[in-house]
Structure formats: C-alpha cells, structure tokens
Amino acid sequence: MGTPVCGRCGHKLASRDPLSLQRVWAFWLMGLICYIPANIYPMLSTQTLFKVDESTIIAGAVELAHHGAFGIAAIILFASVVIPLAKFWAVAYLAISVKNPTGVSNYRRQLLYEVVEYIGRWSMIDIFVVAILSALVQLKTLASINPGPAAIFFALSVIFTMLSAQAFDSRLIWDIQAKEKGRTQ
C-alpha cells in the first residue's frame, strides 16, 4: 500500500502513464518514416544468368500475380501493404479518439486495438520470405537472390509500429466512459 512498485511482480506502478500517448506518437512517426524508403528501394535483387532484376515490395507481388500465383501475391500485398497502412490509421485513430470523444463505442475501439496488436506481427512475413529466399537461392552462376536495402527499413517500420501499439494504454479508451458517467451522476 502506498508503494510505487507492484507487490506481486515488482513492476513500476502508475495509474495512467502520462507519457503513454507521447511514446505512441513517437514510435508511430518513426514507423511511418521507415515505411517510405521500404517501398521505394528494392526488396530483392535476383541475379539470373545474364541479368540482375531488382524489385520493390509491390513490384514483387505484381510479378507473382503475372506468374499466376494470385493467392501468394494477395498474402504479400496484404501483409506488407494493407496491414501496415491499416495499422498506421488504426493507431492514430485510437490515440486521437482518447482525447476527442467519438461516436464509436468503447467496445468497438477495444476490439480494434486487439486486432492491431494481434495482426501487427504478421507484417514480418515479407522479411522472413526474403531471408529464406536469399539463404536458399545461392546457386553460383545460375541464379542467386540477395536482400535489398528496403528489407532493413521494412523490418524497422514493423518493429516501430509494434512498439507504438504496445505503448498505447488500452485503459485510456475506457476512461472517457468513466468520466462521462461521473458527470451525469
């Protein structure tokens, strides 16, 4: 009682971390900054017998679709374009909504937060694909695949957005309801 650390697990106690939102926005911005070069620079460079072929994330997916692998192209597009963009929007929306009340119910926003936290990690899939491909396809002169500079930016972007979502304190969503109830009583 009256101690600043949790008696059970020893973690520092704070009713609401006043810096929570600042950290959310800081990581969010870092993630967004890293996401731009991740889409401009090539993700993979494929060397076949006579030519070097460099492709960005989106170009790679389009190429897959040309080969007829629509399912895989959809997974790649979904994991590396749709999920990150949706995540930037969702985190920003949640962070703004705790300051300015919106019409969307708390439960809906809580659900949105859970989805963001759960699905954010899946963006790493493209990095792993690049890792597997560049380790596996090293066939001397015949063909070789090497990672491009976009890989590092993309990984950073995913890590920063994960940190941003973790920095968000989901209890802030419910504080508004508690405040409004207090006002009517």
């Binding site: 897959l64 990690r121 899939i125 596996l136």
Partner: peptide, 26 residues
C-alpha cells in the same frame, strides 16, 4: 510473447516455396 514469431516464419516458408518452385526443384 509478441516478439516470438515462429508461426509467422512458417507461413513465410510457404510463400518462399511458391516463389522458388518455378525456378528450381525444392
């Protein structure tokens, strides 16, 4: 917990396999 990504790597494998399968036998 959120930083343990074994299952994501497994799906990544499936994607990588499809990408390579027309280039070589895997």
């Amino acid at each position: 917990r959120p930083w343990s990504m074994a299952e994501i790597f497994a799906i990544g494998c499936a994607v990588a396999l499809v990408k390579v399968s027309d280039l070589a036998h895997v």
